[in-house]
């Protein structure tokens, strides 16, 4: 477990983990006949082993319970866990024969979005993935997963390449949001995202998208217009970060208001499934994807491959019509019965 990022709600687990560590060394000590005695721990091997087994099962039970009822704000924290697998992790764990392609052919190369061809299951695909960076240097290069306009333009450039050769597209979303900065604005951040939204709606190949961590607003949607969209169990997806929302609507961002905003925004996977914004929630390993990256990647791969199997059966025209209707139907409003007033 990373000690530099502690989840408060995991306190009961940490207590158990300490006990487990002590009991383990006690079992070792009793087995080898070496080590301290008289520390209040069981003196008998069978007893120690029994206690250890009991703690281990309590640990997995507690973990399952904690993660089953994560509050929205704690979900955001899990989604931001520094050990949580990122775009490149899933690419390494899911794709075979990956070949990365760089650059937007206009102004630059943005490492916050990774693009390239690879193979998943029986399919060729083009993968487009946010990447936050796994160490400090990489994080700085990737701007912590906040893409610049060239990232979105690179993504579209490669997706159009895939479309040209009939290769399906897989996008993995994990960003706090598109980068808010002077240069990003100067180079047309808004236009870059808007253009992706427009053009992705017409790419005549299957597009499958999964929010694997943070789904921060337009920065997420900019690579997430797809035929099927899913979220990992502990990912979040929202129009604004809880902190941003709290700062505006509660006039201050602190633990309490962030938590209230996270709840109000209905940003969890289950909420977004209910709203119809995503089509599926993909289970994570017990205790979150960061505890078992391999299993997390396997679950993700299985869902993506299943979608590609059904989507590749569709004719492009049918695919595009369904994609249009998928977004056309999103929104919630009433129709007034009486004749409305005439403005203007």
């Amino acid at each position: 477990m990373a000690t530099y990022y502690t989840l408060e709600f995991e306190q009961p687990l940490r207590t158990l983990e300490e006990e487990i560590a002590q009991l383990k060394s006690r079992v070792d000590a009793l087995t080898t006949g070496q080590g301290p005695t008289g520390t209040g721990l069981p003196e008998d091997l069978a007893q120690a082993e029994h206690a250890l087994a009991e703690r281990l099962s309590r640990h997995s039970q507690t973990m399952a319970e904690l993660y089953k009822q994560l509050s929205p704000w704690n979900t955001v924290r899990v989604a931001r866990h520094p050990s949580r697998p990122q775009g490149r992790d899933y690419i390494e764990l899911m794709l075979r024969d990956f070949t990365e392609l760089h650059g937007d052919r206009r102004s630059g190369e943005d490492p916050a979005i990774v693009t390239g061809f690879g193979r998943i299951g029986e399919f060729k695909c083009l993968v487009v993935a946010h990447h936050k960076g796994r160490n400090t240097q990489e994080k700085l290069r990737c701007h912590f997963g906040c893409p610049h306009p060239e990232g979105y333009r690179k993504a579209l450039h490669k997706m159009q390449l895939a479309a040209k050769f009939g290769v399906p597209i897989v996008t993995l979303v994990d960003t706090p949001g598109a980068f808010p900065g002077l240069e990003a604005e100067m180079r047309g951040q808004a236009e870059a995202i808007a253009f992706n939204l427009r053009e992705m709606s017409l790419l005549p190949v299957p597009i499958v998208s999964v929010v694997i961590g943070e789904g921060g607003s337009g920065g997420a949607l900019g690579i997430a217009v797809a035929d099927r969209v899913a979220m990992l169990q502990h990912a979040w997806y929202s129009v604004i970060s809880p902190e941003g929302c709290a700062a505006i609507l509660w006039k201050q961002a602190n633990e309490r208001t962030n938590s209230q905003a996270a709840t109000a925004l209905k940003l969890t996977a289950r909420d977004n499934l209910e709203l119809g914004v995503v089509d599926a929630v993909i289970d994570e390993p017990p205790g979150g994807a960061h505890r078992d990256k391999v299993l997390a990647a396997r679950n993700l791969e299985r869902w993506i491959v299943a979608q590609l199997e059904s989507l590749t059966q569709l004719e492009p025209a049918e695919l595009l019509e369904r994609r249009y209707q998928r977004y056309r139907g999103l929104g919630s409003f009433d129709l007034a019965k009486q004749e409305a007033p005439v403005p203007g």
């Binding site: 808007a194 929202s238 604004i240 940003l267 999103l330 929104g331």
Partner: peptide, 26 residues
Amino acid sequence: GARMQESTLSLMQMAKTSAALARHDR
């Protein structure tokens, strides 16, 4: 911008309007 009080449903309006504009453009 997008209305916070409808969260991802507001966000999806961005995709919806852009998709309609794609058809208008073509």
